[in-house]
């Protein structure tokens, strides 16, 4: 086998210290994606730093924010009473992802860090700019049914596969990152990147940094919400398109609204223009339809994924319908 060093640590500080020592080191949490990538030869870290014993599993409310530790498991978050009560959109999105077995071991931080599921990325015999910059993109003129319609580049049209992240971007989450010198906080929407000319980079986490926790403001969006994931089978499949929708409605008027999409871009895709359009308007179908059209302004298909140009607005409309009609 390809040998690697396995290290285990129990504090974030020591984990970061180990990480900076070796640029070929990677953190190992649930390993549900990383181990696959190692088996397929996509990545070959020289050191795996097992951080599962670092105490970052908290799920708690501090002030008006809910804090979720980076090592809380997907199922622990999805099933936590605080999340179900105050951030049910997040709970639903998590439950739409993977399978129960995977959710039990996959962590919040790992979910954010998972790589694309593009088939060209996984097959080391085929070109992929994300895996090996400069080799070309197999998907642009190849099989691109699962691929992006927003924010694509000539280098890469891969999508970020997470469901959880779609809800988090909609919920205005923030991410706390740490390096040896201290912590910084960034908006969740700025965590992931577009492919641009650097498709090898999925996000803005620096090489010496570790994800510590999420902070999510409590909101009034826990009543009318829906996470609608359209996929090829009813469970355990990545999204063709998914929509996180949440509404705050008063007298059928939209006070606040959040919309984000998955399966359409290199990062979870927040629909700001649609939200701005809907704010203050009536929660009626014609407005939902207009909002959906607004969301599609810069969309571009690549052949195999052209159907998303129709599926995406339809899914936005249906997610808003379902969010609105939730009792």
């Amino acid at each position: 086998m390809i040998n690697f060093q396995y290290l285990r640590t129990t504090t974030a500080k020591s984990a970061i210290a180990l990480l900076v020592k070796d640029k070929n080191a990677k953190f190992l949490a649930g390993g549900t994606n990383l181990i696959d990538l190692m088996k397929r030869g996509v990545t070959a870290p020289e050191k795996l730093i097992d951080i599962n014993h670092v105490p970052l599993k908290q799920i708690e409310q501090i002030g008006n924010k809910i804090h979720i530790g980076a090592l809380a498991s997907n199922s622990a978050v999805a099933d936590h009473p605080l999340i179900k009560e105050k951030l049910p959109l997040l709970s639903w999105a998590l439950q739409a992802g993977a399978s129960a077995q995977l959710r039990n071991v996959a962590t919040v931080g790992g979910n954010m860090m998972q790589r694309t599921r593009c088939g060209y990325f996984y097959d080391i015999e085929m070109p992929c700019n994300k895996r090996q910059p400069g080799t070309g993109c197999g998907a642009i003129e190849g099989f691109n049914r699962m691929h992006a319609i927003f924010g694509t580049s000539e280098q890469c049209i891969a999508v970020h596969p997470s469901d959880m992240c779609v809800a988090l971007v909609a919920l205005d989450a923030e991410v706390v990152l740490a390096n040896a010198k201290g912590e910084r906080k960034i908006s969740f929407k700025d965590f992931h990147r577009l492919a641009g000319d650097t498709p090898q980079l999925d996000n803005n986490l620096k090489v010496d940094e570790m994800i510590i926790r999420l902070e999510i403001p409590v909101n009034n969006l826990a009543k009318n919400y829906h996470y609608l994931k359209v996929r090829d089978r009813a469970s355990y499949a990545f999204a063709l398109v998914s929509v996180a929708a949440a509404l705050e409605i008063s007298n059928n008027k939209i006070i606040d609204v959040r919309l984000a999409m998955g399966g359409v871009a290199h990062k979870p895709w927040r629909l700001t223009a649609s939200e701005n359009f809907l704010k203050g308007k009536e929660a009626i179908l014609s407005n939902f339809e207009q909002a959906a059209q607004l969301a599609m302004q810069d969309a571009k298909g690549f052949g195999g994924n052209d159907f998303k140009l129709k599926l995406a607005p339809n899914t936005i409309i249906e997610a808003l319908n379902l969010a609105k009609s939730k009792a």
Partner: peptide, 11 residues
């Protein structure tokens, strides 16, 4: 098995 879809229980 993630991308070749055989039906799951939910189907």
């Amino acid at each position: 098995f993630a991308d070749y879809h055989v039906p799951v229980n939910a189907d």
